[in-house]
């Protein structure tokens, strides 16, 4: 079998803010009734985390759980184990209406790191990224320029962003341009 690579194979841009294509990341879309006990225990079994509340992300040593919509979660898992985890969820959710799909290769993940990361994202997203409004653990699905994306803050001035793989190269160019040296105002 051929070796899987991510869209930009770990490309980086060092400007005012560092942009990194995160490489292969395991991601599973899980849709179903988020209030269900069965779904809660299935998620807990595979990533060891609870269901996040609205627009939040829970992260732990085994991965993460991101709230994507009232009936959708994005599980962040180990890339190599993604298919096995989907199988595990499917077994755990037997008899209940749900959908679990390995979308690892359909997505691209970027890291936006450094002082000014908020400003870089704020250039493209119609989102309040001020320090009071957007904190560690918050997640927002929105757009960057014209591209649909979801991003969350892992620690102060460190963001992770996920978008469709098909637009990954453009997203990298967009973020790199927004992070050019001297172009990032100290606003927040």
């Amino acid at each position: 079998m051929s070796n899987a690579i991510s869209i930009l194979n770990g490309a980086t841009f060092d400007g005012a803010v560092k942009i990194t294509e995160a490489g292969l990341r395991g991601m599973i879309t899980l849709r179903g009734d988020l209030s269900s006990v069965q779904l809660k225990s299935a998620v807990s079994a595979v990533v060891g985390l609870g269901i996040p509340t609205q627009r939040k992300i829970n992260r732990g040593p085994k991965g993460g759980v991101a709230w994507m919509s009232p009936d959708e979660l994005l599980l962040l898992v180990d890339y190599d184990n993604a298919d096995a985890i989907v199988a595990e969820i499917t077994t755990a959710m037997a008899g209940e209406h749900h959908m679990a799909v390995n979308v690892s290769d359909a997505r691209a993940v970027f890291l936006i790191e450094g002082q000014g990361a908020r400003e870089v994202l704020a250039k493209g997203a119609p989102v309040d990224l001020s320090t009071d409004a957007f904190r560690v653990g918050d997640l927002r699905r929105s757009r960057i320029g014209q591209l649909a994306a979801a991003f969350w803050m892992t620690e102060d001035d460190h963001f992770e962003l996920v978008c469709f793989r098909s637009v990954g190269a453009f997203m990298f160019d967009w973020l790199s341009n927004a992070a050019r040296e001297g172009s990032v105002p100290k606003y927040f």
């Binding site: 627009r55 919509s69 927002r140």
Partner: peptide, 12 residues
């Protein structure tokens, strides 16, 4: 009302 976000028109 589904995700509780107050957003501008371009997101909709």
């Amino acid at each position: 009302p589904n995700c509780g976000v107050t957003a501008e028109e371009t997101e909709f």
